[in-house]
Design a protein around this nucleic acid. Structure first.
Lengths: 141, 141, 141, 141
DNA sequence: GTGGTCTAGACCACG
DNA sequence: GTGGTCTAGACCACA
């Protein structure tokens, strides 16, 4: 699992970890059942405080994105966030989407540019999924 | 100008103010040259401390979205954030957009649903602009 | 006398007036004995509050750069700031000069660039003096 | 880091802090990566309110001169204000430079005196850099 | 321990 | 009446 931390970006480190793990899952680099690194291991790798990694994992457990098995480690869950009401999901996504719109407006980006950018990011995410799939077929990883 | 604060949302109050003012500008409810409420006035209306409003206004000035005139008040600027490099703009919007994608993935929303939602939010924003325009044509407001 | 006000520059309007009158004197556009506009006149011309102009004139009188004659108006003084101790003058100019150096450093400007810029601004100031001199010789103004 | 505040100079305290930190960086007393005092620490040292120091630091962050790391402290940035357009830089420096010229004129200082003073202040700034460098070579500090 | 947010309230400078 | 500065002190979030 590849994670990169920018300690001076303003975004809390624990949040960067959460976001990147979520992104890895969405891109297929991490799949349901996969084991994620132990807290101390990831902390050592990123040279950050284990408490920070622990906090990130705790949040991910709350969101039921990972599950911790006593004595074994943490694994990517296979149910995800299914228990949230559809309405609530729409509300959450709409909120972030509105942020995008407002930001884009203040940057003088028009609808077409924005939609193109969305498609581009979608492609990027999917390409990563494909690459991952291929590499596994070929026995890499 | 209508602003609503949710003190228990986790989002800092001053940021909520910033976001809602930006949204109002994007939706056309606030136009270049328009006066925005005085610091103390908005503070009283929202029942929060004037310093908090002042902080929000200061940030908006830094982003060149509003300008403050001594002893007169604060006004919506007419140049906006034009001086940010195009590349930087794309980076910022892409980042938020990726957050949307990831969130949508974890909610099991597919591409079509996501794109529909984007269109829907765009429409909503534009309707508000139209309504505002119409009301002014008809002499309301 | 030509004065231009930028109400949204952050610099107080009364200070802008002071600075521009001082600059006009340094450039020779205003000379000792010259009459400067009445408070109300300048206020009307710049479309600002007469109090603001009055405050600027008051400050200039304090610095003995202009003198007010009852019932006649205000005039450019012919002694200037001679009564300030040489040491104090050096201190004041050094302070502003240090600000320039620091600002230039943070902008990655080297000594040569800075000195060239100084020469350039000096030339500009002197050209204005020459132009002014010529125009008067030729009977303009 | 040595900072001195003059509470009765008319210059806002937070601005004095900003200017002195900028000067320290220009003089090499503070280098990229160096840690600057914690907000509360500097506030205690200067016997002023922590909020005032925090405000100064926030401004310096906006100018990208320092970066704050959560729970760690604030550090001198290593990129600085590189993203401002060259033209804008010239405008800003020219403006302060014009102030110097005008002030010097009103003090009856001629060009040579002014240029000598500029050289003198430049030397002073550079000496401080050298001293700093030497002290480090010799193992002091 | 760090930086960030917020409140309550005073005082100043500007127009 | 406007925005800006400052204080005193509380509480939170992060590492």
């Amino acid at each position: 699992m590849y994670i990169e931390i920018n300690p001076s970006s303003g975004v809390p480190i624990y949040l960067q970890i959460i976001n990147q793990i979520k992104y890895s899952i969405a891109a297929g680099a991490l799949r349901p059942g996969d084991k994620i690194p132990a807290v101390r291991e990831l902390a050592a790798q990123l040279r950050i405080n284990p408490n920070t990694v622990a906090k990130a994992y705790r949040e991910l457990q709350h969101e039921k994105i990972i599950v911790a098995k006593w004595g074994e480690g943490s694994f990517v869950s296979n149910h995800g966030a299914e228990d949230i009401a559809k309405k609530e999901k729409l509300r959450i996504v709409s909120e972030i989407l509105d942020n995008v719109l407002v930001q884009a407006y203040h940057f003088n980006m028009n609808d077409t540019e924005l939609k193109n950018l969305l498609n581009q990011r979608l492609e990027l995410l999917k390409n990563r999924m494909q690459v991952k799939g291929k590499r596994e077929e070929e026995g890499h990883e």
